[in-house]
Design a protein around this nucleic acid. Structure first.
Lengths: 342, 342
DNA sequence: ATTAGCACTCAATCACTGAGAGTGCTAACA
DNA sequence: TGTTAGCACTCTCAGTGATTGAGTGCTAAT
């Protein structure tokens, strides 16, 4: 259902006012602030229409109107212009990205922190699990008598390390040899296929060092378990303290608990999202706990797997800004990753 | 100044009641709940005395009394019996510690999480910087053309890794050689003394690979910067949402912001602490931001440096439980570390 | 020294009121 | 026919007593 120009203008005015002030918007202030050339009475009539259509609602008879979730949905679908990063923001972003080109996880956390700062909502970045990447190199480095460090480098450069016990009789050189043997056999193998592979050959190759091999396999197994899940980086969760709709302690606690716990957050974000920026508003969210919140999510391409980046905030959200910023940052992540920089 | 038995009993009753209910305690309820064999009127007289001495205060004339910070201090210094972990808690703890003996940082975060769960306050563990440990082993592992991973293992087993650029002409073997050369020269050197050391000799040794060496040194430098500071692990910050004294949004936000930011938290914890469990109550804290909170901190021995573990909560804190738990966990950390398990 | 009794104090709660914001409706107007 | 001015109406919010009840401090009796 489409609205005529005037109704659209009024709806937009109300949305912008309400998002800014968190107060119901009256007919007078619509006319005043957006100096439309019509009277408050006319606006009142239109507002009554919009309410009947379901785009607005009234907290009580003598209050102004606030946009319904359906109203926000209409705005997002039919009227919204994404507002991209302005020059000063871009400058900050580039400064951040050039600062200290460390691990990929550094970039992710920096971009996430930037996102939450620019939008003033909680941001999240989901980095897909690395289970599909390949072994590149395996090393065993002695630490002390009987202790060694197992290092695994994958083709996308992710490093996993874990302490293992080794017989104290074994020499540094031998450990190196064992590492090399592993590397030789497993190099190029997908991590999740490792078990089925030529471990027999490896055992054969190093049959007199079965103990170390077992330890290594055990450790690799634990690593796999640890890296099986996607990881989540959350930033700016405390931003919701600024939103008047969460002055209630119980609500606040529920939401903050979710925003603090990676696992809980993951369960909340829609599994399937489209290529574009995805917006789910209030009750559109499946997860009960966040039916008073909105999500703005985009997927980025992380070595073939889909990662996700987005913000979570109140239904009364600056969707235009959030959507624009999330989209920009998604593109930046895509770009950084496609460079094969890492 | 010491109190007679009856005054002590009354003070303790009031403290326990107030800590539990967060409400001022009246003379009647003191008699009732702790069935003392004296009348409310007598208690009133004693309470008036205690107030004059500064151990109690009255929010307003017709309210009961609440313990002053001085009252808590007296209780902590002269009356408190630390309440250690009970059997079921100990069982949980041991289960947790046996679960998955991974990195030292895993242990720290598990112990921290346990601490916050048992006490219902925010817990923190400060792990001292590793700058005083020694190089053990340096490796350079090629990842792709022109990219390699630099690995540094120290004697206490801490691993640092960082990607570096290398000339794409260089071979895997050569990288290994360079790593070995570094290891040979730097092994046993304290990390913070590295710069002054025989880097010249190293340069001589590998004069044709100056570029790689510079990259490595640069990377090590960045690593040093990153590991110069002690690290902080915070758990259960949201516990303060349960405390009625923080229903005020501004207060809440100030505190939570501190509890979210490692750096801010570090600034708050006293530099110098004694061997025993340290308790600072309300305004005893130097940091202005937490003058409505109390700290319970103990130091543990982390390879010769002092680490810290503790909780932060409202002045109305269960000091007996907090102090006992912090002390127990400090001892556990000490024990784990002295085992040279890592 | 302890206690019972009593007057007193003060926060918290509730009902009431007036002000103000905003609406819906009606009638007049272009 | 669409727009507007005007007005009565509704509902929230802030402020004002009035009331209640918990708890005290003091005094006089034990």
């Amino acid at each position: 259902m489409s609205l005529d120009t005037r109704k659209s203008k009024i709806l937009e005015s109300i949305i912008r006012d309400y998002v800014e002030t968190a107060e119901p918007v009256g007919s007078r202030s619509v006319v005043r602030k957006h100096n439309l050339r019509i009277s408050a009475a006319t606006v009142r009539n239109e507002m009554a229409d919009l309410e009947e259509m379901g785009y607005l609602e009234q907290p009580h008879t003598s209050a102004g109107r606030i946009p319904s979730e359906m109203g926000f949905r209409y705005y997002v679908d039919c009227m919204m212009q994404k507002e991209t990063l302005d020059d000063s923001e871009l400058e900050i972003l580039h400064k951040i990205l050039n600062e200290n080109i460390g691990e990929w996880s550094d970039i992710v956390s920096k971009v996430g922190s930037f996102l939450s700062q620019v939008t003033n909502y909680a941001s999240f970045v989901i980095v897909p699990s690395i289970k599909l990447s390949e072994f590149k190199n395996i090393q065993i480095i002695p630490i002390t008598d009987g202790k060694a460090m197992l290092l695994v480098v994958t083709d996308v450069g992710v490093l996993m390390h874990r302490r293992i016990d080794v017989p104290s009789s074994i020499s540094s050189n031998e450990l190196q040899l064992i590492g090399k043997a592993f590397t030789r056999v497993l190099s190029g193998t997908r991590l999740d296929e490792m078990r089925r592979n030529e471990l027999k050959a490896l055992r054969e190759d190093l049959k007199n060092r079965r103990k170390v091999i077992d330890k290594v396999l055990e450790a690799v197994d634990v690593m796999m378990q640890g890296s099986r899940d996607e990881s989540v980086v959350i930033n700016g969760a405390l931003n919701i303290l600024n939103e008047p709709e969460f002055k209630d302690m119980d609500k606040l606690k529920r939401i903050l608990t979710i925003l603090e716990e990676d696992i809980l957050l993951k369960q909340i974000i829609p599994e399937k999202i489209s290529e574009d920026v995805n917006i789910t508003i209030g009750k559109e969210n499946k997860a009960e706990d966040i039916q008073e919140m909105s999500l703005v999510v985009a997927g980025y391409n992380n070595f073939g797997e889909m990662g996700k980046i987005g913000v979570i905030g109140p239904v009364r959200m600056e969707y235009w800004k959030a959507a624009g910023t999330v989209e920009s940052l998604r593109n930046i992540l895509d770009q950084l990753l496609s460079k094969k920089y890492f």
